[in-house]
Design a protein around this nucleic acid. Structure first.
Length: 569
RNA sequence: UGGGGCGUCGUCAAGUGGUAAGACACAGGAUUUUGGUUCCUGCAUUCGGAGGUUCGAAUCCUCCCGCCCCAGCCA
């Protein structure tokens, strides 16, 4: 008996399955499936479906099949199959046995189609695509029957066999279900079941030249696999009538039911395969795994832990109302997952040299830093300190506003795990006026960061010893689009016109604490006060260090600064 | 007056006749050698609107309004 208590938040599909389960409606079985078409990469919208389908199977002690819906040979590729498998496993799910393919069922599907024809429920239509459209009618007017609708069963059988045998060219005939050309649901107006497509299929090669349509293949594949609950997104609600109609005509061992939920939408990004393909193919991003993309491979490369995505999916819920989730919720889930486990490090992204005038030039001392304040077991490490260090340019202001409590002329701050320093002089480039160096003094009595006299400082800065620092490139990512809804209809513009020009900022000259020279792939570090960073999986060659920023830390100062700059003229 | 869906806090979302969960965001405050974390506090007298049924309605009924999906030989 499966344990159905305390398994994440409730949702209407879970409720339905629970009732079916208790009523023993499918013999106590719960079988779901995740059915991607291998024509692109998985994104976080798919993650919602994956978590739902695999999660439900897990909760009810059932199974969730991975099934590639490969009925359109012109769009599908084996490379996508592999990428999808990798992404599903990375997300933390696995499927029983081998992955399934709709193409595995082509022969069965063909025979079922023949059955329909023999029962007088399907016919070969020889109208062109345009003519079929004209006959379909409109939303408010009924359609007209095709002149080929009443061919004899024998003729239909012969024609359909010839279609399979390659006797006809693409588009010459199609197989249609004989339902009702006046049906108020357009999908029921004699929908196309099979079309001729003389194209090589990624798995079956040239053995077929007719391919089943989604509506025919999907419900039958579900029945063949004895799926009990076939969960899909809202736009397939209209297809349910056809799903049921087909299953009702045929004598199948299992009777699956389809349920629909609202797909995920996230603000500041796009979540449609068509648009993602465009961004990739037109070079707006570097590839499917560009860290700015909401693809699972992009999120992975950016350092997002799979558990964060699962938690995110738990929190957004499953319902039928179209909605747009705030990307801040994803960022929260990522921080929440990383905070307790990410090793702390110091790294200076935009270096500003600081010379500590009263510190001996030849002296290097090792200071003890805590690896993770959230996890005492993570221990400590030694960080070198010397006369010349780098601090963050943002941590100094020559003429600071009231709420800025970092370094400024004459002000004293703490260097994390090191000393209190006081700014004595600002050195500028005489030509440009740009600040190039700070001259400071330190208080040797504050070693480790505490003043024996109990005096306080308002700020603690991260820093790195100039002579010991590891040079690195750091890539900062921001939202891909500058508008919350890139798809919003604006005259003469498309979503691509709203790409955020600042979604990627490359900082080529960063200085990191020496330990980071030996950073481990797949670990996400917290650069203190800045955010979470990980080694870029594509740039591991040689000694060059390249880090991706996964997500920033929450930044109260940035918010204050932004608010006051907004108020200022 | 084609059909199918959906409307609960800024954003998601529980709730299914007994008197509006939770999360994110936001705003205060406490602790803090990360302006991080953590911890308190506040944040829908109201559930698209209007009527009605009922002792009692977000939940039932009626009407209205708004949004989404469908006219691929895509999925």
């Amino acid at each position: 008996m499966a344990e159905t208590d305390n398994q994440g938040p409730p949702n209407f599909i879970k409720t339905i399955i629970e009732e079916d389960f208790k009523a023993d409606r499918h013999g106590g079985r719960v079988v779901t499936r995740f059915p991607p078409e291998p024509n692109g990469y998985l994104h976080i919208g798919h993650a919602k479906s994956i978590c739902l389908n695999f999660g439900l199977a897990r909760i009810f002690g059932g199974q969730c099949n991975l099934r590639f819906d490969d009925t359109n040979p012109t769009k599908e590729e084996t490379a996508y199959v592999e990428a999808i498998k990798t992404d599903v496993r990375w997300l933390g799910f696995d499927w029983p046995g081998e992955a399934h393919f709709t193409s595995d069922y082509f022969e069965q599907l063909y025979n079922l189609a023949l059955r329909l024809i023999k029962d007088g429920k399907a016919y070969v239509d020889s109208l062109s695509a345009d003519e079929i459209r004209e006959h379909r009618g409109t939303l408010t007017e009924p359609g007209r029957e095709s002149p080929f609708r009443n061919r004899s069963v024998e003729e239909n059988v012969t024609l359909f066999r010839q279609m399979r045998d390659g006797a006809f060219a693409d588009g010459q005939h199609v197989l249609r279900a004989k339902i009702d050309m006046a049906h108020p649901n357009l999908l029921m107006r004699d929908p196309t079941l099979y079309r001729i497509r003389k194209a090589a299929h990624h798995r079956t090669g040239d053995t077929w030249c007719i391919y089943p349509m989604y509506d025919f293949a999907h419900c039958l594949s579900d029945a063949i696999e004895c799926v009990t609950h076939s969960i899909c997104t809202l736009e397939f609600e209209n297809n349910r009538a056809l799903y049921d109609w087909i299953l009702d005509q045929l004598d199948l061992p299992c009777r699956p039911r389809q349920y629909e939920f609202a797909r995920l939408n996230l603000n500041f990004t796009v979540l449609s395969k068509r648009k993602l393909i465009q961004l990739v193919e037109e070079g707006h991003v570097s590839g499917w795994d560009d860290p700015r993309l909401p693809t699972l491979s992009g999120l992975r490369r950016r350092g997002c832990p799979p558990a964060a995505i699962r938690n995110f999916c738990d929190r957004i819920g499953v319902a039928k109302a179209n909605s747009v989730v705030d990307i801040a919720l994803l960022e929260h889930a990522i921080r929440e997952d990383l905070n307790p486990v990410a090793p702390r490090m110091m790294g200076v992204l935009r270096p500003l040299k600081v010379v500590i005038e009263n510190h001996p030039a030849d002296q290097v001392e090792m200071l003890t830093a805590i690896n993770n304040p959230e996890d005492p077991a993570a221990g400590t490490r030694e960080v070198p300190f010397s006369r010349e260090i780098y601090i963050e340019q943002d941590d100094f202001m020559e003429d600071p506003p009231k709420k800025f409590f970092r370094l400024a002329p004459g002000r004293e701050v703490r260097l994390r795990y090191a000393y209190f320093i006081t700014c004595k002089e600002v050195v500028k480039d005489p030509a440009t006026g740009k600040i190039v160096e700070l001259r400071c003094t330190y208080d040797p009595a504050t070693r480790g960061g505490d003043a024996p006299d109990g005096r306080k400082v308002k700020a603690t800065l991260h820093w790195v010893s100039a002579a010991h620092a590891a040079p690195a490139e750091v890539r900062l990512y921001d939202r891909l689009f500058s508008k919350p809804d890139p798809d919003e209809k604006v005259e003469g513009r498309t979503f691509k016109d709203f790409l955020n020009p600042e979604s990627l900022e490359i900082l080529p000259d960063c200085r990191l604490e020496p330990a980071l020279a030996h950073a481990v792939p797949d670990t996400v570090y917290q650069f203190e006060r800045l955010g979470y960073f990980c080694l870029d999986s594509r740039e591991t060659a040689g000694t060059r260090l390249v880090f991706n920023r996964t997500v920033t830390l929450k930044d109260t100062w940035a918010r204050i600064a932004q608010q006051s700059s907004r108020k200022a003229p």
